[in-house]
């Protein structure tokens, strides 16, 4: 759906090129929720804006649905942008227009629908985001979550195939964030909409994304399914994000291990394996004792997962390890 071939971007400041995005390749599939995570200044915002060419690439090629977007002329670019919705951290609604007029704006600009068809479409969109009774209010009269819902309705007005989300939940409180993410997941499912979102919160990625790219200093340092990246982070930046999300301090954890006897393992379960009574049966069969040092059972999007750090003592340790290796879990021996 979205293909980046060696796309790069540099800003010219005082005659010097400041790189914002190093040459990058990226493939995003149709119907996927793709997350880009990075700290501010990592280049994620630039990457997102290259997709609808709010930023002009300095090199490389961007193909969307097989069409070379980098080659579009001004009129072609305008038509292309009508097929790509976008929502923003600060919503960017027109304060001078009512909720209904804000949602109608992309339709008015496209100029393809009659007045009555436009009204019907706006009513549909407002119903979808649950704001039907607020149609005639002005944005200043709405809460942050409601404003973002207007933003989403407006972005969906022209029935786009792609939705770009620029830190769409960063200005919202945790509860509102959850409901906006739920709405995004719902429209992704119901409309088969491809969603590309950028964020600095791993939790946002964990809740809605299928795949994720981690950015640091203009480079995509890690990319893969959210479960892989979340449960087995490779790059230091990714690990930091995961630790922030789990509020675990790795150093503290290792200090705790020093006082514990036996082998220390980390088990990672995914999907149905999360519910299998594995530990009890291994302990019974091999006579080992286990104590749980740290752990977390949660969901990545709709998939349950568990990650436990254990200490094993006594019994037939080798048999226990062999048994765990054979099971449907990911095993790391930490000590």
């Amino acid at each position: 759906m979205i293909n980046f071939h060696q796309v790069r971007k540099a800003y010219r400041v005082n005659g010097q090129d400041i790189p914002a995005l190093q040459p990058s390749d990226l493939q995003i599939a149709r119907g996927e929720v793709f997350g880009i995570i990075g700290h501010s200044g990592a280049g994620k915002s630039t990457l997102l804006r290259l997709i609808n060419r709010l930023e002009e690439p300095s090199g490389g090629r961007i193909q969307i649905d097989g069409e070379d977007v980098t080659a579009l002329d001004a009129a072609g670019l305008r038509r292309f942008r009508q097929r790509v919705g976008m929502i923003f951290q600060h919503f960017n609604l027109l304060s001078s227009k009512t909720v209904a007029a804000n949602v109608a704006l992309p339709l008015k600009l496209a100029g393809v629908l009659s007045r009555s068809a436009m009204e019907t479409r706006v009513a549909e969109l407002l119903a979808r985001v649950g704001l039907s009774e607020h149609a005639n209010k002005y944005p200043a009269q709405l809460s942050g979550g409601q404003k973002q819902r207007v933003g989403i309705a407006r972005a969906l007005a022209t029935e786009p195939k792609i939705l770009l989300c620029d830190e769409a939940t960063s200005a919202l409180d945790p509860q509102t964030t959850a409901s906006v993410l739920q709405l995004l997941a719902q429209i992704n499912r119901e409309l088969n909409l491809t969603i590309v979102l950028i964020t600095h919160e791993m939790d946002v990625i964990r809740r809605v994304c299928d795949r994720v790219a981690v950015m640091d200093a203009g480079v995509i340092v890690e990319m893969g399914s959210v479960a892989d990246v979340f449960l087995h982070p490779q790059h230091a930046t990714t690990r930091r994000f995961v630790q922030e999300a789990e509020q675990v301090d790795e150093g503290e954890l290792h200090d705790d291990f020093a006082h514990v006897a036996g082998r220390i393992l980390r088990l990672t379960f995914q999907g149905q394996a999360t519910y299998a009574p594995l530990l009890g049966s291994v302990a019974r069969e091999t006579g080992v004792d286990y104590s749980i040092l740290a752990g977390r059972i949660d969901h990545i999007k709709d998939t349950p997962y568990g990650q436990l750090t254990l200490a094993l003592t006594g019994g037939d340790l080798d048999a226990a390890l062999a048994r765990l290796k054979a099971a449907d879990v990911h095993l790391e021996v930490l000590r």
Partner: peptide, 10 residues
């Protein structure tokens, strides 16, 4: 941001 949002609408 409002200009950017309007640009993004085409």
């Amino acid at each position: 941001g409002i200009i950017e949002a309007t640009q993004a609408m085409g």
